[in-house]
């Protein structure tokens, strides 16, 4: 499945510009990091993506248990940093990290707008393919075996 589209980075950059947020990321349901924009130097994005996917799937199950289809937004407020997470078409999670408490409303508003832009991009995806790089099976098996032998020396 191809869930990345070229416009995603621009959409997230736009959101950062309008909200003054520190970082924005898109995470897949499986916990993979799809796009990251802004400052990512202060945390481990791979680990955060795994936690975000876990947290979101857990809240979704909680919602189902009380008869809701799902909660669409998750907001974690800390003392100096806050995390806003919203779901895009049950496929991706938009994560926004910001530090200004005052901007919660703006983040929420812009996240909703960005989600719609991203949802449109995802809907178009069927017709688009990526030609920037390809990965063919030729030699893949042999390369993979060599890599595995190097990594796991037994």
């Amino acid at each position: 499945m191809e869930i990345y589209s070229d416009g995603m980075k621009d959409a997230l950059a736009g959101l950062l510009g309008k909200t003054g947020a520190k970082t924005a990321m898109l995470v897949s349901r499986e916990g993979y990091n799809v796009v990251e924009v802004g400052d990512v130097s202060y945390f481990n994005t791979t680990a955060l993506a795994a936690l975000v996917a876990g947290a979101f799937s857990a809240t979704r199950e909680m919602a189902r248990m009380v008869g809701e289809k799902g909660f669409s937004i998750l907001l974690q407020q800390g003392e100096s940093r806050h995390i806003h997470i919203s779901l895009i078409q049950d496929l991706l999670m938009l994560v926004v990290i910001f530090s200004d408490n005052e901007s919660i409303g703006r983040v929420r508003y812009e996240a909703r707008k960005t989600s719609m832009i991203l949802a449109d991009q995802l809907a178009e995806k069927g017709t688009r393919t990526h030609l920037e790089s390809r990965l063919e099976e030729t030699d893949f098996g042999e390369n993979a075996m060599n890599l595995i032998d190097r990594v796991f020396q037994t």
């Binding site: 390809r134 990965l135 063919e136 099976e137 030729t138 893949f140 098996g141 993979a144 075996m145 595995i148 990594v151 796991f152 020396q153 037994t154």
Partner: peptide, 25 residues
């Protein structure tokens, strides 16, 4: 421990090759 993970990794990458990669020309 390593032997187990090594075998799993092999299978996973081979499965990916079978199911997701383009055929070479």
């Amino acid at each position: 421990v390593t032997e187990t993970l090594k075998e799993a990794s092999k299978q996973v990458l081979m499965y990916l090759r079978k199911t997701q990669l383009e055929r070479g020309v």
